[in-house]
Amino acid sequence: MKALTKTDFNFPGQKSVYHGKVRDVYNINGEKLVMVATDRISAFDVVLPKGIPFKGQMLNQIAAKFLDATTDICPNWKTATPDPMVTVGVMCEGFPIEMIVRGYLCGSAWRTYKSGVREICGVKLPEGMKENQKFPEPIITPTTKAEIGEHDADISKEEILAKGLATPEEYAILEKYTMALFNRGTEIAAERGLILVDTKYEFGKHNGTIYLMDEIHTPDSSRYFYSEGYQERFEKGEAQKQLSKEFVREWLMDNGFQGKEGQQVPEMTDEIVASISERYIELYEHITGEQFVKEDTSNIASRIEKNVTEYLNK
């Protein structure tokens, strides 16, 4: 099992490339973007030293499915998937914020709440909540989009407007789309015996219109619980059975790593890497309701290069 952790393509019409934490984005003639979902994995804003086989393929295929399933809610950037690890789409000017929506109190929001804080991103939280409890209504807790190596920071709607990161009219559309997408994701998850706990969306503008960008409803951008046994575990104060990247974070924390200065990433053995890959496949099959078909990984880079070049030359 090979993993693709680095790309260095030179596609027809390529102007530039941006290497993100897990995705590499190629600018084609200032009009199209070729987004390669690599097998890199990040946690606590740190890219871990080993790639996870098939992770990029899974994320790309889940995102493509959800982008296609939400075109009636809002326009999105995707135009094609010429390779299992690649999405090609229209180039948008991104808003420098991520729209995070939470249906349940867990993860970083729970850690903040547990420390005594009762307001996140300008949203007041009720007293007496417990970990993994459902909010009366989903809440939107945006963050700034950090540069590489920096942490995303919480930001309120008021701060977004005050800093001019979006106009009031734009922000109203972002909120509307965020809630509608979350509701759709929740419905699809419920059909598959899952709870969409929280997720994030990124938006940008293309020809003056707001588009949904990037990936959606993947285990990298979302957290899922299993519906079965949720209530029972919640009432007993037990950890929820979840499908998300949280298990990677938990493994890191159990081994003394939270992305803080001076901390070392624990050794990623072949067993750990294989177990993470298996968890991703489990989520893929759960959320799509389809069996995951592993692509040939003998030479991933040349396969991608051939598929994308053929598509761009059409």
Rank of each mutant, 00 (worst) to 15 (best):
F182G: 05
D198S: 04
L161S: 08
F135H: 00
K124P: 00
I173Q: 09
H206T: 05
G204I: 02
I120D: 03
T143C: 02
E137P: 00
E170H: 08
I148Q: 03
C121S: 15
T143F: 01
P142H: 10
C121H: 01
I173K: 12
G149A: 04
T167P: 09
D152Q: 02
T199P: 05
A162I: 08
E127R: 03
E187V: 13
G149C: 04
G116C: 06
G149D: 08
A153V: 14
I140N: 00
F135S: 00
E187Q: 14
P138R: 06
A166D: 10
A190D: 10
A190I: 14
L174P: 03
I195M: 12
M179Q: 06
I139D: 00
E158D: 15
E137V: 06
G107C: 09
E158L: 13
H151S: 13
H151A: 06
P136M: 02
I160T: 12
Y171W: 14
L196Y: 14
I155A: 09
K124I: 00
I148F: 02
F135E: 00
N183R: 12
A166R: 09
G164P: 06
E119V: 13
T141I: 15
A109G: 07
K157N: 13
S108W: 08
E137D: 12
T144F: 02
Y201N: 05
I160L: 06
I188R: 04
G116M: 01
E127F: 13
A146H: 01
A189G: 11
T144N: 08
E131P: 01
I120T: 10
P142R: 01
A190S: 10
A153T: 12
K157F: 09
I195N: 03
T186M: 14
R111V: 15
